[in-house]
Nucleic acid binder design. Structure first.
Lengths: 354, 354
DNA sequence: TTGTAGGCGTTATCAG
DNA sequence: CTGATAACGCCTACAA
């Protein structure tokens, strides 16, 4: 009377259920926990056994049920990452986070916030996956918003962007001020004295970069010349438009500056385009610089001298901060300022009059 | 003798565990399953109760454990989405997928494939979350690769990009051929006869678009003029470079074409930049068109006539395909061709000689 | 290396 | 609406 055997044949009756560790164990005639040992990569199985188990796993199309795993595991090894698909730079950081997390033995769970999907639900999803920590990239939240998240959830929060140092969550930002200051110093070193600053005020990090400009100019004993776009560009993301608008503004002046520092590459590209149409040549008539080293800055027809904020460094710093607080929650939060570097291309030269 | 009461105080001893449904139930003096009913949004609770439960949830910082949920749930309501952070267009599609999925009552789980993270593991992760279906956006896999995934996993697979119709997985692609053909027809309608095609061969969808060009030219009785970039650009993604290179090639000719159709906006922008430097004006000397309606096409200094492939339509189509096969696995796979639309801006005009 | 026992937080079903 | 009970797939601890 094999009463068990009768119920076991799961022949052709309906849904095909994904294989589990038990299935692999049965298939191989080993214990279920041996299979677990293999997939967890912990000691307790011979290398030959490991090979066989993994082989069988591949054969049966097995992948460990992440939900069950996170349910049972003592502590999560997942980093939740919130990002906005709209901004390309953020995605380079996301890529870097994947690499850095893998190196530290962590997985990554992504959640996007879009026009139709506010930050709140997006963070809730991350929390629902029981991440060990949450990394916010270029969040649209202000300080209080992030504070609310960091307090509400019990997990450490890292803000990558332009946050302010505080003692509730970690902050990673690039040294936008010193990056611009370095650029000003470089351009002044070429002999420029009339150095204007193109300010697209709608950017969140604009104030920081502007400060870098004004301070550097003061230190050099030069007169600051901050040019904002006329009209209301306070919500646009088409910075090329802003650059073109500022170019028009400058063309109305009696005399052009000999150098223009832009606080992002898009604005610089728009500036260059419009100036080109008006017969003003870069760098012969005006030296031009950007910020970000975006794709457009690297195009041979643009070839923009710019400031690079390394997304790899940002991502790595974010992961480091998160892991640090995960492994040692008692440690105080910190602010990581990632250095920038100057990329000199052909859009800058000594002024003609020099 | 409240023997239970004594063990219940989980005072200040160590780790603070995220609240569960039981915690909320206890807090409110109701049953655990009532709480479940509320968070599942199924009938069985008064609206007043729902309010109180949700309120308590917010107060305690509760978010349902997604792992436990997916472990227990009969069928998943998650769509796994694989994308490459490198390509901006894909991210617009991702955003659209979020919106479309929400409308159909599905959640989205993201997984990125990057330089350091191959497609294989990225898909495994999705499968590990027990998604109901997997959507591949702009995958680097060829037909056989996708086939392997679709066969290996038991879930439906949708490929968004340039896949070929087949009976194992669904395909969503834009009508690149007719989009270009429409453009050629439009430009010919302006009076152009010498219409060249700028072909950045490294793009996966290049062949399809080229075909649209050659067919339209033949139909119009015009001579096709496909211009590829000199040298090896087979792996570049800097299409501006390609555009500039082709511009140089054309400038070496005795006579310029009166119109140039580009198969993407970046290439058109590079073309425009270089031509501008050489004193060739757009559209007075040459009419120029792009494809994608990328940000750069919309810049006022470029203002490119182009073909728009609506990411919203692509994302929606992908979700529809996935949901269709999830709810009815027996249904055959299908190919969805998303229509494109012409965006006429100021980079096209009638030829001078006409 | 194997087996055994228990439990993670949730969904699901049933009878009250 | 409550209470009881089972199960999902996996991890952890312990004993064999």
């Amino acid at each position: 009377m094999s009463s068990e055997g009768d119920e076991t044949y799961d022949g052709d009756e309906g849904e095909r259920r994904p294989p589990t560790m038990s299935d692999i164990a049965k298939h191989l005639g080993v214990s279920r926990q041996l299979v677990s040992v293999v997939f967890r990569d912990v000691p307790g199985a011979s290398s030959e056994t490991r090979r066989r188990v993994r082989e069988a796993g591949r054969e049966l199309g097995f992948s460990p049920h992440l939900g069950a795993r996170s349910l049972r595991r003592a502590k999560s090894k997942d980093l939740g990452v919130l990002f906005a698909p709209a901004h390309p730079t953020e995605l380079e950081i996301v890529a870097a986070i994947y690499a850095a997390a893998a190196e530290r033995g962590f997985e990554v769970i992504l959640s996007a916030h879009t026009d139709t999907r506010p930050t709140g639900p997006a963070v809730q999803e991350l929390l629902g996956h029981r991440c060990a920590a949450v990394i916010l990239i270029g969040s649209d939240l202000d300080h209080d918003g992030i504070l609310a998240i960091a307090r509400g959830s019990q997990v450490p929060v890292v803000d990558v962007g332009y946050g302010k140092r505080n003692d509730t969550y970690d902050v990673v930002r690039s040294a936008g001020d010193t990056g611009i200051a370095d650029m000003v110093t470089y351009v002044a070193g070429l002999g420029h004295r009339q150095i204007a600053f193109l300010d697209p005020a709608s950017m969140p990090m604009a104030p920081l970069r502007r400060r870098g400009y004004t301070r550097a100019m003061k230190r050099l004993g030069l007169e600051a010349d901050v040019v904002a776009a006329p009209g209301d560009y306070s919500h646009t993301n088409y910075f090329e438009e802003v650059g073109a608008a500022v170019a028009r503004t400058l063309l109305d002046r009696l005399e052009l500056p000999t150098a223009v520092i832009c606080s992002n590459d898009q604005a610089a590209a728009g500036f260059l385009q419009l100036m080109g149409r008006q017969g003003v040549r870069i760098p012969q008539d005006i030296s031009l610089t950007g910020f970000d080293d975006a794709t457009i800055a690297q195009v041979s027809a643009v070839d923009l001298t710019t400031v690079r904020q390394d997304p790899v460094l940002m991502g790595t710093a974010a992961v480091n901060a998160a892991v640090r607080r995960v492994t040692n929650p008692a440690t105080p939060t910190q602010e990581t300022v990632v250095p920038t570097s100057l990329i000199v291309r052909s859009s800058t030269a000594a002024p003609r009059s020099a």
